[in-house]
Every structure is written in C-alpha cells, then in structure tokens.
Computed example of a mutant assay.
Amino acid sequence: MTQVDPLFLSLIGIAGIVALAWCLSHRWVWGQRLGVTMLVLLLGVAVRNGLGWQPDARVSGWVSGPLTSLAIAELLLAIRLKSLLQRARPLLLLFGLAVLATVVGVLVGAVALAQPLGDQRSELMGLYAATFSGGSLNLVSVGRILSPPDALLALATAADQIVFTLWFALSVGFGRSDRLKRSVGRPPSLALSPSASPAQPAGWVWPAALLWGLVALGLSDLFSKGLAGIGFAAPSILVLTTVAVVLAQGPGAESRRACSEFGQFLIQPFFAVVGLGTPLAGVLTEGVWILLYAAIVVGMHGVLVLVLARWRVPLADMLVASQAAIGGPSTALALATAIHRNDLAVAGVALGLLGYGLGTYLGVAMAAWADGSFL
C-alpha cells in the first residue's frame, strides 16, 4: 500500500481547513459572525484535539515563515497613510485613547501576574500590546521578531482569540442597546476603499498584487543585509513592515488594490498552523495564566472604553474605535454594520489599517522596555 507523502498530506490538510472556514463564513450565519480567522483557528484546534493530527514541521515552518511574510507585506501594501488619516479623522482621537487603554491593560496585567508569568512576561507584553492595537496581524509580526517558543505563541494566540470574541460580542450588545436608547436612525452607507469593497477586483490586479508583495520581500531582504553589513542587525520583519508601508505611499495604487484581499487569504494558513499546535488541555493548564493575562488586558481596555463613553463621547464611536484596536479593520467594519452605524465603517476600517502599521512598533517597544527591567 502506497504511503502518502507527509508534506503533501500536510499541505492538503491546512488548505482543507482554510477552505472549509471560508465556506462556513459565507454560508453559515454563525460562521459570518465568527469570521474566517476565528473559524480557521477553531477548526485547527478541533482537528488537533479531536484527531490528534499535526502537520509536518517543515510545512509548518514554511507557512509561519515565507508565506506569512508575504501575507504581512500584502496587507501593509494596502495602507495609504494620507487617505487613511483623512478617513480616520473623525475617530482618530478615540482610537488613540483605545490604544492607550490597551497599554494600561498590558501594564496592569504584567504587574498583577508578574510571578506566574515569570520569564514569559516581556514576550506576552509585546504580543498583547501589538495584537490589541490593530489586530492579529500584529501578533504575527511581533511573534516573528520576538521568536517566543511555539507552545507559548500558540497559547497566546488562542487566548487572544477567546477574549477578543467575548469583547466583540459585548460590543455588539452595548452598541445595539445604545442605538435603541437614542433612537439613532440608520445613516447612509459610505463607499469603502477599493480594498474593502465587496466588488471583485479585475483579474489583472491579482498578479500585480503578488508582484508587489514579492518586490517588498526582495527589497526588505536587501535592506536587512545592508543594515547587517554596517553592524545594525534590525529584525527582518520590522524592516519588511517599514519597506511595505513606504512602498504603499508611492505611485501605482490601482495595481495594489487587491493586496488587502490577497493578504487576508495568505494569512489564514498561519492561523490553521497555530490552531493545529494548540492543545486545549494546555490552555486550561499551563496556559491558564496567559488566558487570564489576555482577559485582564482586554478587560481593562473595555472598562476604560466604557468610562470614556460616559464622558459625552458617543458610545458607538468609542466601540468602533475600540474594535479597530482590539480586532483590526475587519472587526471594526463588522461591528459598525452590526450596530447599524454604517457611517462609522470607513473610519473603522481606516483606523484598523493604521493599527496594522503602528501596532508592530508598539509591541516591540513594549517588549524591549519590559526586558530593561523597568517594572
């Protein structure tokens, strides 16, 4: 009997999880609410804990390495800072306060759980400062820079998804309740940027998006080697982030309008690998303090957001800004739609994309600060 190549089986398994998640997110009501990323992670966890299957380490390494780097580049190539700042201006101050609330939560949790977290504290501070300032892409980026153990990254990602889901559900409830109290009418929809539009891009922009991503990877590799040659070894993912954002400000925006969708698709195998590496028993045993830390961070964030909303700040505006920080552009858009505030959708997406560019630097800075034993 012919034995199936483990590399081929691993590729098919990961692709199957991603394909099933995409299908469920489009055809199942709860799938639409959970979103593709959460479904991919949950399916991966189910396969790992139900069937005991894990992909070949070589395939996991390729997914977490080159493929994820390309996905990060594609997502960042969608950021036009001038346009984003214009679109995000109505909620920009609130987004800044939401990120500040995240930083407060990170610091409070780090102090409260200093002993049980131990040597993992600085890495978790960096990971959670990043992911709760612009979404899971930042956790991936900072994870690549800090290189925590695979088990720690898997547990941190699982805890991130659990507390994010709870806060999103609460935000929808708060937002809908506030709308009923104020009898807010449904404002007219605003046109989103091309990358967030439901219309499918023309066929030629998909190869163009791939080409842009490869160019960003190539240039970042050259810059990394050049910096290393002069004795300044900057983390490669930080160089990639900077190069991609700079390229996104240049000409050729039309040829980059599929980069966001392409990047969202390419990042999903990473979450499948994370799910496949997450034993549930671990989350409830050695991961219980990590889960508690994530809960403290988002809990403090939520409390400060709700307190700010009492100071004559519209609750819906504050909640969308919060989701742009905690979950990123897609969840900010989903929340604005769920609470019937389509007028906040564009600003929410813009702030989430802005968080993609800023959260990585914030996470790295927080981890470096913690390593300096200032706490």
Rank of each mutant, 00 (worst) to 15 (best):
residue 4 V to S: 09
residue 7 L to R: 14
residue 7 L to K: 12
residue 7 L to Y: 03
residue 15 A to Q: 14
residue 19 A to R: 15
residue 20 L to Y: 05
residue 28 W to P: 01
residue 29 V to E: 09
residue 33 R to M: 05
residue 36 V to I: 05
residue 38 M to N: 13
residue 38 M to C: 12
residue 38 M to T: 12
residue 48 R to M: 09
residue 49 N to K: 03
residue 53 W to R: 06
residue 54 Q to N: 05
residue 55 P to G: 05
residue 55 P to A: 08
residue 57 A to E: 13
residue 59 V to Y: 01
residue 60 S to C: 06
residue 61 G to V: 00
residue 63 V to G: 07
residue 64 S to N: 15
residue 70 L to H: 15
residue 77 L to N: 03
residue 80 R to M: 02
residue 82 K to Q: 11
residue 91 L to N: 03
residue 94 L to D: 03
residue 98 A to M: 08
residue 98 A to S: 10
residue 99 V to G: 01
residue 103 V to S: 04
residue 122 S to G: 03
residue 127 L to T: 15
residue 133 S to I: 10
residue 135 G to Q: 09
residue 140 V to T: 10
residue 142 V to P: 12
residue 143 G to H: 14
residue 145 I to L: 07
residue 153 L to G: 10
residue 153 L to K: 13
residue 154 A to T: 09
residue 156 A to F: 04
residue 159 A to S: 13
residue 162 I to V: 01
residue 166 L to K: 12
residue 169 A to Q: 06
residue 170 L to V: 11
residue 172 V to H: 09
residue 172 V to C: 05
residue 179 R to G: 09
residue 181 K to Q: 13
residue 186 R to T: 13
residue 187 P to M: 15
residue 187 P to W: 04
residue 187 P to E: 03
residue 188 P to E: 02
residue 189 S to A: 15
residue 189 S to K: 09
residue 191 A to G: 13
residue 196 A to Q: 09
residue 199 A to N: 11
residue 210 L to A: 12
residue 212 W to M: 12
residue 218 G to H: 10
residue 221 D to C: 00
residue 223 F to V: 05
residue 225 K to H: 14
residue 225 K to M: 05
residue 228 A to Y: 08
residue 228 A to E: 15
residue 230 I to H: 09
residue 241 T to A: 13
residue 243 V to Q: 10
residue 250 G to V: 10
residue 252 G to Y: 03
residue 253 A to S: 07
residue 261 E to K: 11
residue 262 F to S: 02
residue 263 G to T: 04
residue 265 F to D: 03
residue 265 F to C: 01
residue 269 P to N: 08
residue 271 F to P: 01
residue 271 F to K: 11
residue 272 A to D: 05
residue 273 V to M: 00
residue 281 A to Q: 10
residue 281 A to H: 05
residue 282 G to R: 13
residue 284 L to W: 06
residue 284 L to Y: 06
residue 284 L to A: 03
residue 290 I to R: 15
residue 298 V to D: 01
residue 298 V to P: 02
residue 300 M to Y: 05
residue 301 H to R: 06
residue 302 G to T: 06
residue 303 V to P: 00
residue 303 V to Y: 11
residue 305 V to R: 01
residue 308 L to K: 02
residue 313 V to Q: 13
residue 315 L to H: 04
residue 319 L to N: 07
residue 321 A to L: 10
residue 324 A to S: 07
residue 325 A to C: 08
residue 332 A to E: 06
residue 333 L to G: 08
residue 336 A to D: 02
residue 339 I to A: 04
residue 345 A to T: 10
residue 347 A to F: 13
residue 348 G to T: 00
residue 350 A to G: 03
residue 358 L to C: 12
residue 359 G to C: 04
residue 359 G to Q: 08
residue 362 L to C: 13
